[in-house]
Design a protein around this nucleic acid. Structure first.
Lengths: 355, 355
DNA sequence: AGCGCTATCGCTAGCGCTAACAACAGTCTC
DNA sequence: GAGACTGTTGTTAGCGCTAGCGATAGCGCT
């Protein structure tokens, strides 16, 4: 059987086949052998069943279930240069409005066969860069990030990724690519306006604006501007520093605000979580809300309307942001162009009992 | 140069090289060329820098940053048959104690170079199977699932995955593999015991136990047993059906409980979210809690201790579950054996003002 | 000098899949 | 009946990386 050695040509030394750690799982070829077709045909059945004949499809599908085939997406990604995944980078996922955005985003993209992987930055910009870098190793077909302010390193990575990017939950005159958001500054200013209309004059802003939450910092800017324009008085602000976004921190912020500005007649927080903690502390201490002190939050969590008194807050279309982001990203991933790549989804001051 | 054609063998027609969509990104070979070494050496620098000489390492690392190389993990997975990822399957991620578990799990594993991807089942068992299937396509090195009751299809997939699996947040005499949890039934029984000690006799259980939340169903079982043993009376239960786990649903459950069992002197809910909604509704309506009606939740969310009156609940070591799961999984992924593969982390009834 | 050892680096052959063709049968057109 | 076209399947050559060697140089020892 073995053909003669061609004279003059030195035969390569006989190699025993390398042993590789045998993969335990069923491959396309296994299914192909079982169905009596080529691997390519099985691949077609998996990805686009209508591209093969009825008879073949039935046979392959039977083999597919019989063998319990699970496609190896790493191999698929490598061969096709498409990962069918989208990465989302959010500051925090638990107990947060970002969860609604991510959920809507995820659902909309899942309907088109995309998987989403979510990374949290814990409000630390340098961590954002690290997480982004490790995510890019999976070669996502698109990216969603929360916020419009990024480190130079992050901007470089986003640019070099070569895929569509949506920035969300903020507004910018100079976005990286796509943008679905609203002006945090305008929203905070609208809240100040609401409080002023309700007769408040000594409004304190309490947030976590110095330690890596650019949205809170933007809201602070809006507060500053509105206080200057509407009241002409000095701003009054307290900051939670690096404390986590919890109700406990909200109580601490309230104490800080009342200590530093004892004559405050309103405190507006950079998050409903803070405001909810402060509100319950007031109820417990017998402080009359809104009689003595008005309180307002940001985000319109479900909790806000259930609290007694119900919490005034700024509603942001979190779900809409997720849906719209998915829509724009899908268009771009299909290779089409997006006519209006920057979308302002707005906000809404929801006046309730706490003011 | 071209060797003569062997007679009788027809030469294959000359092919022009196939064009593949040129990948835009920097590869190992690009870096290798820039550093004047082989691709293999660059790979070594990336994965285990100490395995090359100081001089070479410095040169390669310079090339690495100069080119902006980002490794292609799909190719790495394929070649090494290891994905350095772990998949986690939870019912819901937002506003939930599972978020704490996932966060702790994720942090512990990230320290060892693993990435976690999280899938949510929305409390739909059939969805669990689907999500699991698509996750297995990424060939995770380990799996975490919430719960110990699974569909036959899920069990098959878990078994066939060939990687370590941790079940969490439940207890079972017959786990798939590893287990880090506690008995939901015992926890619910302990809550009944607590309520009985506080003098309650007409205790109603309100939950979402018929539609895909096995934990709630287990808690219901524990309630049944405890009511039989301690009170000898008929169980009183109301069910939310497929409604989402929200505070709104909690209010609806309260109404249902009071309509069906108007003489209830205590309502225990299968989640703090439900209990919080119900509690605030009582406050708003002027129902005396705990004077007229005692309310209890499950999970010990941060909210529970801030509410007025503070909510009695069952504290579960969510963070510990995540940490311990990561620990056991890491041991198994290293190839070592776990001495005690099933760990009961316990629970704790936290008595507060609402009872 | 000759031997065995270690440290360092390169070469080769895949991992499982899909893009880009090629091959062929059947259908339609003039 | 030749030519063009369509639908279906197979063949080939990678995608970017790493396992498993092999090759080489430098070292200490006999």
């Amino acid at each position: 059987m073995t053909p003669d050695i061609v004279s003059g040509v030195t035969q390569p030394p006989p190699r025993r086949p390398r042993k590789r750690s045998a993969t335990r799982s069923v491959t396309l070829s296994d299914v192909a052998a079982a169905a009596g077709v080529s691997a390519q045909t099985v691949s077609r059945v998996v990805r686009d069943p209508m591209s093969v004949s009825d008879e073949t499809r039935a046979r392959v599908q039977a083999a597919l279930t019989a063998t319990g085939y699970v496609p190896n997406l790493a191999a698929s990604n490598l061969a096709s240069n498409r990962s069918r995944t989208v990465a989302a980078l959010v500051p925090q996922i638990n107990a947060s409005v970002f969860a609604d955005t991510v959920h809507a985003f995820s659902t909309a993209l899942a309907a088109h066969g995309y998987q989403i992987f979510v990374g949290t930055t814990d409000y630390r910009p340098e961590h954002e860069e690290e997480v982004l870098r490790s995510f890019l190793g999976r070669r996502p077909d698109g990216l969603l990030v929360v916020g419009t302010r990024h480190t130079p390193g992050t901007l470089t990575l986003l640019g070099a990724a070569g895929v569509p990017v949506v920035e969300t939950w903020g507004w910018s005159e100079d976005p990286v690519d796509l943008l679905v958001g609203f002006s945090n500054a305008a929203a905070a200013a609208a809240m100040v306006d609401h409080l002023v209309r309700r007769g408040r004059r000594r409004i304190t802003f309490a947030g976590r604006h110095t330690s890596g939450d650019p949205r809170a910092a933007e809201r602070l800017d809006g507060y500053h501007g509105a206080v200057r324009d509407l009241l002409g008085s000095e701003p009054r602000t307290v900051d939670a520093g690096p404390e986590p976004v919890t109700m406990d921190t909200g109580v601490a912020l309230l104490d800080l605000a009342l200590e530093r500005y004892p004559d405050s007649d309103a405190v507006m927080f950079s998050s409903d979580v803070f405001a909810a903690g402060a509100l319950q502390a007031c109820v417990r201490r017998g402080v009359d809300v809104p009689g003595t002190l008005a309180l307002a939050g940001f985000g319109d969590f479900e909790l806000a309307r259930h609290l007694v008194p119900a919490l005034t807050t700024v509603a942001v279309p979190s779900v809409r942001i997720g849906e719209l982001s998915a829509e724009l990203l899908l268009t771009r991933m299909r290779g089409a162009t997006v006519d209006v790549p920057h979308r302002d989804v707005g906000y809404r001051v929801v006046a309730r009992e706490s003011t």
